[in-house]
Amino acid sequence: MFEWLNQPFTPMTVLGMVIGGVIVLSVILLVVAYSIYAQRKILAAMHLRIGPNRVGPFGLFQSFADILKLLLKEDIVPAKADKAMFLIGPMITYVPSFMVLAVIPYTATHLFTAELNVGVLYYIALSSISVIGVVLGAWASNNKYSIIGGLRSAAQLISYEIPLALSILGVILMAGSMNIVEIVEAQKNMWFIVPQIIGFSVFIIAAMAELSRVPFDLPEAESELVAGYSTEYSGFRFAFYMLAEYVYITAMGGLAAALYLGGWEGPLLPGWAWYGIKAGLFIFLTFWLQGTFPRIRNTLLMTFSWKVLIPISILNIILTAIIKIAVA
């Protein structure tokens, strides 16, 4: 029922698709809700605070209360805003964030996963659509903090996409495929984090910048730009931006696990559990950095991408190619 890619288009397969979609979406929402909860708890522990502890046992339902609150809030559109663009901005950011999840292989059985031959390319291409929503929303808000945040965001995401893609190129060279499932399977003997340690370092840094996480949280640098591009947003439109951000963290964790950490591979535990652990490690890393670092200077941000990360990742590709030829 759930193998629809190579089956005729019948009502049964459509039903299967819908059920599968709903299951994936709810699982992801659950993961996102609890990664927000985990972030608050982990940061609280690092800050010597308690963190959320009022809603449900240990504050376990805090995220749902927050989401409910945001959904019930008034949807305010500033009088001088470009209304149509203002309303559409969060959607453009939000939709691709869920679409990229299609290629993340959670389990060895590829349940609900599209085995795309251009999986990596698909991920990078879609995730870069999100920035359009950010810039659009920022521009339409007609707010000066928003516009600075939006433009910063555009500049940052575009320049860090390049080292991100280049660092992944090393993995693609190693695996000889752009299909993420095949990349995972190519890591049966050795995880790519070992031969691709340079690429992995570039990937982690570029990923943090792509996700606008500390220390690269300039687009929403609260001490300078109040809330960056989402300053004028409230209610569920703001929730869309927030959700997109956290879905991307989850997706990026999934991508990192698949590309460098051997995906679902691992002893004893089932594949999805290993996958969860590996992606979880990445998610934890983002929170850990948030508790540790100050924000980077924005002049340094661009220089760092163009003058440091890109040369290193190109070097990594050349090294990978040489090693691959030498071994073969």
Binding site: G291, T292, R295
Partner: peptide
């Protein structure tokens, strides 16, 4: 000052 620069943790430590 560290909070201004985007690092939140020191603020809570100094308050302690």
């Amino acid at each position: 000052y560290l909070l201004d620069l985007g690092a939140m943790s020191p603020f809570l430590y100094v308050f302690m």
